[in-house]
């Protein structure tokens, strides 16, 4: 087996591990997200749709509107992760193809890397965050930074594909056991809350006569 084939195989195995372990964790909670027994006042489905769309906009979410820098950095970081994973995927299936797309993805990864470093600095510099952060927070941050940096380095021809795939495999191995598993739990948590608030008629907010919602920004 050539080094390239071996790294691709390892990457595939790590991806399977990550997906399988996350799926197993989700399966353990199969009974936890339950429909309200009480007669609904609204629509759980409409609540879920709202919860994953408008409710996440800065106009509706103080974690975004009151912290535009951190919120913006978070968005850029996640876009960067998506771009980096795409680069890793392309490196395995079409290493010579899609040069323009690869360049664009590298740009997004670079911005994501800057955001990732910014969020790490924020965590280190903010006392309440620093106090409650276990090593996992820093490991997760650095793992993502590693993924972003290595995919960027690959696109800049500084890192061979096999090395990128090995590093990405390392990150994927950590995903289901540390904080990065929020990539799956985010959907479960927001879905659970939104379904419940939808059934209760809280989500989406009703059309109002007079007196706005008045979210203070």
């Amino acid at each position: 087996m050539s080094p390239d084939s071996a790294s691709r195989a390892l990457l595939g195995a790590a991806a399977l591990w990550a997906a399988g372990a996350l799926a197993f964790q989700a399966w353990r909670f199969r009974g936890a997200v339950r429909r309200e027994i009480a007669e609904p006042r609204g629509s759980a489905l409409a609540g879920a749709v709202y919860g994953f769309t408008a409710a996440m906009s800065p106009a509706r979410k103080e974690s975004a509107s009151r912290h535009p820098l951190a919120f913006g950095a978070g968005i850029l970081l996640h876009l960067g992760v998506a771009a980096s994973l795409s680069i890793v995927f392309l490196s395995a299936v079409a290493p010579e193809g899609w040069p323009r797309l690869g360049a664009a993805l590298a740009g997004v990864s670079a911005v994501g890397l800057a955001a990732c470093v910014g969020l790490l600095v924020r965590r280190l510099a903010t006392a309440p965050l620093r106090e409650m952060s276990p090593p996992d927070d820093y490991i997760s941050n650095l793992a993502v930074a590693l993924l972003l940096a290595s995919s960027l380095a690959f696109r800049l021809d500084v890192l061979p594909a096999a090395a990128l795939q090995l590093l990405a495999a390392l990150v994927l191995l950590y995903v289901p056991v540390g904080k990065l598993r929020h990539g799956m739990f985010f959907f479960l948590a927001r879905g659970d809350l939104s379904l419940r608030l939808g059934a209760r008629g809280v989500y989406p907010p009703a059309a109002r006569k007079g007196g706005g919602r008045g979210v203070r920004r």
């Binding site: 936890a32 974690s63 951190a70 903010t126 929020h182 948590a189």
Partner: peptide
């Protein structure tokens, strides 16, 4: 437990 597992401690 779902919600406990989802927190990223962003502190926002």
């Amino acid at each position: 437990a779902i919600h406990m597992s989802a927190c990223v401690r962003c502190g926002l």
